[in-house]
Amino acid sequence: MSEGSEPISMHQQTNVTHVGRDAKLSNGLVNIPPYRGSTVLFDKVEQLKSSSGHRAYGRWGTPTNRALESALAELEGGANAMLTPSGLSAITTALLGSVKPGDHVLMVDSVYPPVRSFCDTVLKKMNVDTTYYPPLAGAGIAELIQPNTTVVYTESPGSGTFEVQDIPSICAVARAAGARVLMDNTWSTALLFPALEHGVDLSIHSLTKYVVGHSDALLGAIVARTRELYLDVRAFHGALGITVSPDDAFLGLRGLRTLSVRLKQHQESALQVAQWLREQPQVREVLYPALPGARGHELWKRDFKGASGLFGVVLHPTSEAAVIAMLDGMRLFKMGFSWGGFESLIIPVKAGSHRLASPISAGDVCLRVHVGLEHPQDLIADLGAGFQRLSACAA
């Protein structure tokens, strides 16, 4: 959009290719380059005194960092965003910036396990109590609100078990109680679930996953619904000395430009693979909300604009040796703990084994599958050969 032109409402597919681009910063280049630097120089004392933190020192971010923050905030419809070195650091920073000693946190029971560990150790040492609630509680979460509840944390779909939460209902209850709602929105990104529009206060992302998209950078972000929320958490963010390399911010900006088309392909391929998996005799259940008939499908269809490529597969009981035989011979699906890149991944997991408030019967043998950008028929062939090895070993 040219300078001085009137804002025009455009599709997110268009926005994602243009947000955060400033011709003045890029000197006419399509992409804003990595601005590397720590020290900012001033010619006049008055300039030094009047400089804001964002322009006074490299730790507060370079033009590259600010371009990505601006782009993320605009895509999500937030007041502003802040970058962190990883998705987990984004979560912990948002939590620490939202609580004080004596507070109470309601934490979804299906949360990413390292966050549970953070609550049970760091927050506990700070005298912040945590109650884990069932992910499908919805408006029923009102029964768990305490006078000192300041944060309700959500993750939808849930980590490993992929429950879809009723975010609008949870937000309504939390707002009535004066509590903030934080959401891990990594699975959907801002393109597939507009978290702030649904009432979330802080939308948290592991940009490492779909935004970077190429498995070559660690990056996180917190997007705040209001300026007041942003300044509150940003003050804590600054006090911790959190900073992000401009090179990593550049990789986030690069990945952002193709996010829309990549997510579309991830979903299209994942649906084909998930449907095929559902028909296999070794599979008990596929945990993918975008799949008709799957757990959470109706709620997903109501609130989401699409799905990514990550889901769970519950196998019928079999031996560990059989699962190892399957996974050790995969050609395209490799084993790795991340997801969201162009490559397909598969790992064995114990879905729901850590849960306290809402035990889930997901079986003892589960796989977490990330469908990448390879042709789905090639991925199906790879899985088919894997199931043959599993059955041969189990026989």
Rank of each mutant, 00 (worst) to 15 (best):
residue 246 P to I: 05
residue 42 F to M: 04
residue 92 T to P: 07
residue 312 G to I: 06
residue 129 D to N: 04
residue 298 E to G: 02
residue 366 C to W: 07
residue 178 G to P: 04
residue 361 S to G: 09
residue 383 L to H: 07
residue 87 G to V: 15
residue 313 V to R: 02
residue 323 V to P: 13
residue 39 T to Q: 05
residue 245 S to C: 08
residue 216 D to G: 14
residue 54 H to F: 01
residue 220 G to T: 06
residue 107 M to S: 14
residue 30 V to T: 08
residue 193 F to M: 14
residue 157 P to F: 02
residue 94 A to I: 04
residue 285 E to H: 12
residue 21 R to Y: 05
residue 386 G to Q: 12
residue 198 H to M: 10
residue 372 G to W: 13
residue 303 D to K: 03
residue 58 G to P: 08
residue 118 F to T: 09
residue 34 P to S: 02
residue 104 H to R: 14
residue 118 F to W: 05
residue 155 E to P: 05
residue 239 A to Y: 11
residue 37 G to E: 01
residue 354 H to A: 02
residue 12 Q to L: 13
residue 201 D to L: 12
residue 390 L to T: 07
residue 367 L to G: 01
residue 7 P to M: 12
residue 188 S to E: 12
residue 366 C to K: 01
residue 198 H to F: 12
residue 187 W to L: 14
residue 45 V to E: 08
residue 308 S to N: 15
residue 294 A to G: 05
residue 21 R to I: 10
residue 312 G to K: 04
residue 307 A to W: 03
residue 98 S to T: 05
residue 242 I to D: 10
residue 289 P to G: 06
residue 189 T to M: 07
residue 41 L to R: 11
residue 220 G to F: 09
residue 309 G to C: 08
residue 106 L to P: 03
residue 264 K to V: 13
residue 202 L to Y: 15
residue 390 L to P: 05
residue 219 L to S: 10
residue 305 K to I: 04
residue 143 E to P: 03
residue 160 G to F: 00
residue 184 D to G: 08
residue 385 A to M: 15
residue 376 P to R: 00
residue 86 S to V: 03
residue 100 K to Q: 13
residue 30 V to R: 15
residue 134 P to D: 10
residue 13 Q to T: 12
residue 214 H to Y: 10
residue 369 V to I: 15
residue 299 L to P: 00
residue 285 E to D: 15
residue 160 G to E: 15
residue 268 E to M: 13
residue 39 T to M: 08
residue 139 A to D: 04
residue 228 E to D: 10
residue 226 T to W: 00
residue 393 C to I: 04
residue 368 R to E: 06
residue 266 H to N: 09
residue 379 L to H: 11
residue 325 A to L: 13
residue 337 F to A: 11
residue 278 R to T: 09
residue 210 Y to L: 11
residue 119 C to K: 14
residue 82 M to W: 10
residue 206 S to D: 11
residue 159 S to W: 12
residue 245 S to V: 12
residue 214 H to W: 00
residue 108 V to L: 14
residue 44 K to D: 13
residue 130 T to P: 06
residue 22 D to W: 10
residue 368 R to L: 15
residue 115 V to H: 07
residue 372 G to P: 08
residue 327 L to D: 01
residue 199 G to N: 12
residue 282 Q to S: 15
residue 188 S to Q: 07
residue 393 C to P: 01
residue 318 T to D: 07
residue 313 V to E: 04
residue 182 L to D: 05
residue 388 Q to M: 03
residue 162 F to M: 13
residue 196 L to V: 06
residue 323 V to N: 01
residue 6 E to A: 10
residue 180 R to E: 06
residue 300 W to P: 12
residue 231 L to Y: 02
